[in-house]
């Protein structure tokens, strides 16, 4: 058991957690380059380039706004564009990160078969790239908040914590998906359907309050709102962003969020992260053979 030394390799050594952290630090230049590559490649050969990061959520927002304020109007929600954008941007980061992470290993087969570097950098870089996109898209949201007179309240200080929770959650899922996809290419197919279902199960184009408090399926009575809080971390995360930036249905603008709810979500995210990391680091050495 030795910690990481870049200039010494013994195949019998098992890598400690601390050792891999030190190794990751050693490769930070690579991580930065991978993130830059992801961002550069995404907008290469497009006319508007990085503006698409801002334009895409804006256009999506317009689609939802037309649908839910003109075609199917919902009178209970004020400032619908803000309402939808506040949830849409984090969701787009989520889907962007997962869709990229699932191919992070299989898409980099030529590198993995020829060069040694900590493999975990690949899914990490894809998640960080979508985080950069998220930050760019947030500029649109920021402008919109002031245009609609919602503004920024003191409650927005919750955002770094919610964002941290979401990043930990996305990293964990990203590691898990990237490793699974290497062994079973079905993962990406399942993810495609899974993300669509997940989108509908997450309060994005409808408020969280739409979940009832009582439902019955096959004689089992349960509380849909509580169930969502428990099994769908994204529901809590998206609702968190919305509460601190837009508010609640029937409320007066941004409100504080429940610290305990955030803590519960954070613990779930950390658990997912640990599972994802464990699966990834245990199967990492097989990637060279499987690809």
């Amino acid at each position: 058991m030795v910690s990481y030394r870049p200039e010494h390799f013994d195949s019998n050594d098992t890598q400690t957690l601390w050792g891999s952290v030190v190794e990751l630090y050693h490769y930070r230049f690579l991580l930065r380059n991978l993130v830059i590559r992801d961002l550069k490649v995404r907008y290469k050969n497009s006319l508007l380039g990085v503006i698409w990061s801002l334009l895409n959520p804006l256009l999506m927002m317009m689609v939802y706004t037309v649908l839910f304020t003109i075609l199917i109007p919902d009178e209970t929600i004020q400032n619908y564009p803000v309402f939808i954008l506040v949830a849409l941007i984090p969701w787009q980061m989520h889907t962007g990160a997962l869709n990229a992470s699932v191919h992070a290993i299989t898409g980099s087969a030529p590198i993995i078969k020829k060069v040694y570097f900590p493999r975990i950098l690949l899914p990490t870089a894809t998640v960080l790239a979508s985080l950069v996109n998220f930050l760019l898209a947030s500029l649109v949201l920021l402008v919109l908040l002031f245009v609609f007179g919602v503004g920024i309240s003191i409650h927005a200080l919750w955002i770094p914590l919610i964002l941290l929770t979401q990043i930990v959650f996305m990293l964990g899922l990203g590691y898990l998906l990237a490793a699974l996809q290497t062994f079973y290419r079905d993962t990406a197919m399942i993810l495609e359907v899974g993300l669509l279902a997940w989108f509908f199960l997450t309060p994005i184009f409808y408020p969280f309050e739409r979940f009832g408090t009582q439902a019955e399926v096959w004689g089992i009575v349960f509380n849909p709102a509580r169930l969502m809080r428990w099994v769908n971390p994204m529901a809590s995360i998206v609702d968190g962003y919305r509460t601190v930036l837009w508010g609640n249905v029937g409320g007066n603008g941004p409100a504080a969020m429940d610290p305990l709810a955030l803590l519960r979500t954070f613990i779930t995210a950390v658990l997912i992260f640990i599972i994802g990391y464990a699966v990834f680091s245990r199967s990492e050495h097989l990637f060279g053979e499987k690809l």
């Binding site: 870049p6 200039e7 010494h8 390799f9 013994d10 195949s11 019998n12 993995i112 078969k113 020829k114 060069v115 040694y116 050495h285 097989l286 060279g288 053979e289």
Partner: peptide, 21 residues
């Protein structure tokens, strides 16, 4: 080059490796 892992046996390398595979 640490791309594959041996099924058994041992590899010890001391020094900075550059693998041009």
């Amino acid at each position: 080059a640490r791309i594959l892992r041996p099924n058994n046996g041992r590899i010890v390398i001391n020094g900075r490796v550059s693998a041009l595979l």
